[in-house]
Design a protein around this nucleic acid. Sequence first.
DNA 1: CGAGAGGTTGAAACGAGTCAATCTGGGTGG
DNA 2: CCACCCAGATTGACTCGTTTCAACCTCTCG
Lengths: 260, 260
Amino acid sequence: MRTVIAPAPLIAPLLLKLKDRHALDPDEIVALEAVIGDVREVAAETVVIEADCPLDRSTLLLDGLLGRAKTLNGAGRQIVEIHVPGDFADLHSFLLKRLDSRVVALTTARVATVAHGALEDIMVAFPRLARVLWFLTTLDAALHREWEVSLGRRPALSRLAALLCELQARLTIVGLADEDRFVLRLTQAQLGDCLGLTSVHVNRTVRELRERNLAEMRRGEVRVPDLNALREAAEWTPSYLYTTMPHTFPRSPAIAGVAA
Amino acid sequence: MRTVIAPAPLIAPLLLKLKDRHALDPDEIVALEAVIGDVREVAAETVVIEADCPLDRSTLLLDGLLGRAKTLNGAGRQIVEIHVPGDFADLHSFLLKRLDSRVVALTTARVATVAHGALEDIMVAFPRLARVLWFLTTLDAALHREWEVSLGRRPALSRLAALLCELQARLTIVGLADEDRFVLRLTQAQLGDCLGLTSVHVNRTVRELRERNLAEMRRGEVRVPDLNALREAAEWTPSYLYTTMPHTFPRSPAIAGVAA
DNA sequence: CGAGAGGTTGAAACGAGTCAATCTGGGTGG
DNA sequence: CCACCCAGATTGACTCGTTTCAACCTCTCG
């Protein structure tokens, strides 16, 4: 037997996300890989899944960002969750059979189709996977709850800070963020749709975040000089992510001390 | 064999809620009834389940109202979901093992304990029930999404109207609301905690709802002269409840016509 | 080099919050 | 049986955060 450095499979981010919370057998991993159907690329601001249509498949995000959005006639759209690579955008459609919100690409994105029948099969073959998938849907609910807190109670600054904290943590889990920087190609209008703010006010809030040295957002990249400080400003903790990643980061070592 | 008019079981509301969406075999109903553990009564504003504690049971609401709440230091609490009789307050703890929010009694309430082990057993014995329970957790997520829309995008008036529409619909499913009235013993401060508003502003919004003839709230009772009008004011539809109950109500018959 | 999407800024309007006082109704104890 | 009490509801005046509207700037890409 040889140890082979396997090429990162399409579902690498999904596996990272799952392994963060559950042990997976090699069999289960193979089964998960086999479940992936068509892969396609979608452009930013494209509707990936329309609301209220009968569905017989779910969609796995491989690359880019998706958003789940609901629209009100007068008031524009509210994005109720952002999906990062490794997320199923609509795993709940396995049970609900249709979506109450539409799924929109927020950036150029690559998505894979997963037939509900195939999910059915692997859950029969690997009952533990059924629990893992159920877990994923409850994780979505936990994210929604935290967003409700943001939308209902946090002022603009900590609302944006909390969103950045969440994305930093979730992207870290799938290997797409560092403690002090990550790529985030969202427009300020899209951020506003997530935060229940106007793009104008997002702009002012981004500026304030920068002025307070909490985060810098430029050209699709977020830089966080002190993640703990950002988390404190947002009154944010990762506990609702049910992750096994460390919940706190060491304060950056005293650089002055090193120099001295 | 005799047909017995069985006394309404404790879990009558749960059964109504489930039967609204899924067919249930008599066996499955018996199994569900058997799963109920201790029943206890809790006073209003009592913590029923504390956040972040390890859990080996879930809690079923039999009577009264519960709320799931998260608290921010400066900004008070945000209630992220209201539970009506027949709801599990923390079915997701079956998978998550602890809660990210605390469960609080909003009125005097009766709750029953359901051991996770017992759930495990009935899901093995009746695999369809596993799907039903999973469905319930995805329904919670759908409620959260609609609340995000309210909190993020609806102005105070339609936000309150939407909450009333939702409660009217959910209470109707379990036999606790009429088309034009239902009991709702929440204080204006509690409503504010749900809506992301202050109690003062809830008060003004309640008045406006009354002045516009959309709803009257007094002494723990809500009267809705025209449910369709209230739903229009809130831009609300029951589609996210995934209920089989009729989604629209006939306009009240012309009473003048009857008199004539 | 032009065009367009997205970012930035200012001024004014407005919805909701804050603070504080007053009212009300239901429950309680003397 | 009634005076008292108190949580909750109500109201007014003022403040503040966010929106709105509108203009202008700055990239990036063809």
